[in-house]
Amino acid sequence: MAAYHRPSELTEALEILAAAPVTVAAGCTDLYPATQAKALPGDILDITAIDALRGIAREDACWRIGAATTWTDVLNADLPATFDGLKLAAREVGSVQIQNAGTVAGNLCTASPAGDGAPCLLTLDASVEVQSAHGRRVVPLSSFLIGARRVELQAGEMVTGILVPAAAGAGGGDFLKLGARKYLVISIAMAAARIDVADGAIREAALAIGACSPVATRLPALEDALRGVALAEAAARVTGEMVAPVLSPIDDIRGDAAYRVEAATELMRRLLARCAARRMEAAA
C-alpha cells in the first residue's frame, strides 16, 4: 500500500523527503489530471497541512510566497501594485475551483511552457527557495526553470517558497493572456510587465513572454531599449525584432509558431499601452 504523508511541520516533511522518493502534492490540480486512477499514485507528501508554507509575508529583504499558497490566496492578499500582474494572472488560472486549490509554487514546479505564473514572477525577479533535510538554497527563477516540464530540483528537495526581492516592489505590474476561449484555457501566448517610472520616463522595465518558448523568458533587448523612454512612447518601440529572437515557439493545435511570435509582440505592445493609459488616468 502506497504511503500518504500529511505532516503539519516543515521539518517533518523534509525528513520524509530525505527518507525515500515521494511525490510532493500541493493543490493537486496538475497531479490528478496526469492520472486516470481514482487515487494519487505512488507515495505522496501532501504539504497542505503545513501552515508555515501558506500565505504571503513581507520579510526584511523580500516578499515570501509560501509553497502552499493558492492562487486565491494571491488574489486576496494585500500587496503593492507591483504584484498587480500576478493577481491578473491568478484570476485567469483555470477557474475559481482551480484557483482555490492550485498553488503558485506548484505551477512553477510543473513548469509547463504555458504556465501562467512564470512570466509575472520573472518580471518580479523572483527566486525559488528550495529546501531539503540538508539545507536551504535559493535559485533564481530563470535558473530554476530549465526546460519544458523540467526544473532544478534534486532528489530530497522541495520548494518551500517563492521570494520576490524588495527591490522589485517598485513600479506597477500588468499581465495579458491570449487564449482561444474565456475561461479554463491554456494560453496561446502571454505577456507580463513590471514598469517603474520616474518623471514620466521608464526607469526600469521588466518584461516577459510566456507560452512562446520551452520556458517563459524575459526580453532583455526591449528592456534596454525602453530605459529612459517616455512611458507613453513605449508601446510604439515594441518591434518584432526585439521580441522574436528570444522566443522559440512551436506549432500546435492552439496556434502556429509564426502566429505566436506575432501575437506575443502585439500583446507586449498592448500591455505597455495599457500601462501608459492607466498612468495617465491615475494622473488625471
Binding site: A25, G27, C28, T29, P33, I44, V96, Q97, I98, A101
Partner: peptide, 27 residues
C-alpha cells in the same frame, strides 16, 4: 472528466468551490 476541466464535480470545501475530482479525500 476527472481532470478539473468540466466542473461537474464542484463541491464546497469549507465554503470554497473546488473540483472534488482533484481533491484528495483526506483534505
Amino acid at each position: 472528466c476527472d481532470a478539473g476541466d468540466c466542473g461537474a464535480c464542484t463541491v464546497l470545501l469549507d465554503g470554497a468551490a473546488v473540483c472534488a475530482c482533484l481533491t484528495p479525500s483526506v483534505r
